[in-house]
Write a protein that binds this DNA or RNA. Structure first.
Length: 181
DNA sequence: GGGCCCGCAGGG
DNA sequence: CCCTGCGGGCCC
């Protein structure tokens, strides 16, 4: 199976981050709850560099950060998030377009998160406006470090196509998410 | 180093 | 609804 092969490839040469560390994706001086007006500002301040994409990272390093928008079938329970992968869509300008084929772990950005699930390196999580009841009503908010604890495929009930899912668990010992509901 | 393709924006 | 923009990773 393709996924097992990828896991085998990616698990070579991986670093492991002990449970008690925040890892090297944490930015000194970036406080939980820090607000940003736009994706542009997130990019300029290097909290999440891509101005459009939801997943930031590299194939060898893994992911660095993700942004939740609420426009996908993510599940957000605050300390636990199930983030949907990228790809398999048409007409991207519709943000997002309809799912027209299966998502794949071969997709570079999905590989970043798959890699992170193996090297246990915590990633930064940013919530966009109204992306869930844990999200700010406006602007983007840095909500701390999360670990990717699972990567699997699931059937998207809307389209019937398979999508990649990533379970994110918030690293303990951080200030709570500043929920405002 | 350059070109290419892409994406959980943002706005017209 | 439709288009432009922008930064990035990646593979020549």
């Amino acid at each position: 199976m393709a996924l097992e092969r990828l896991r085998a490839q990616l698990s070579m040469n991986t670093d492991f981050f002990p449970q008690h560390t925040m890892g090297d994706n944490m930015i000194e001086g970036l406080a939980v709850g820090a607000m940003f007006e736009s994706r542009r500002e997130l990019s300029e301040k290097q909290v999440h560099r891509p101005t459009h994409a939801g997943i930031s990272g590299t194939k060898s390093f893994g992911a660095q950060s993700v942004v939740l928008s609420g426009k996908y079938s993510d599940e957000d329970e605050g300390n636990i998030v199930v983030y949907t992968g990228t790809g398999g869509q048409k007409d991207v300008y519709r943000n997002p377009g309809p799912q027209v084929e299966d998502q794949s772990f071969d997709h570079p950005m999905n590989q970043y998160l798959l890699k992170s699930s193996l090297n246990k390196r915590p990633i930064r999580v940013i919530r966009g406006p109204s992306s869930s009841r844990y999200a700010p009503s406006q602007g983007y908010r840095y909500d701390g470090m999360y670990k990717v604890t699972a990567a699997y495929q699931d059937k998207d009930p809307e389209s019937g196509y398979n999508v990649c899912k990533f379970r994110l668990e918030r690293v303990p010992g951080q200030p709570p998410i500043p929920v405002s509901y």
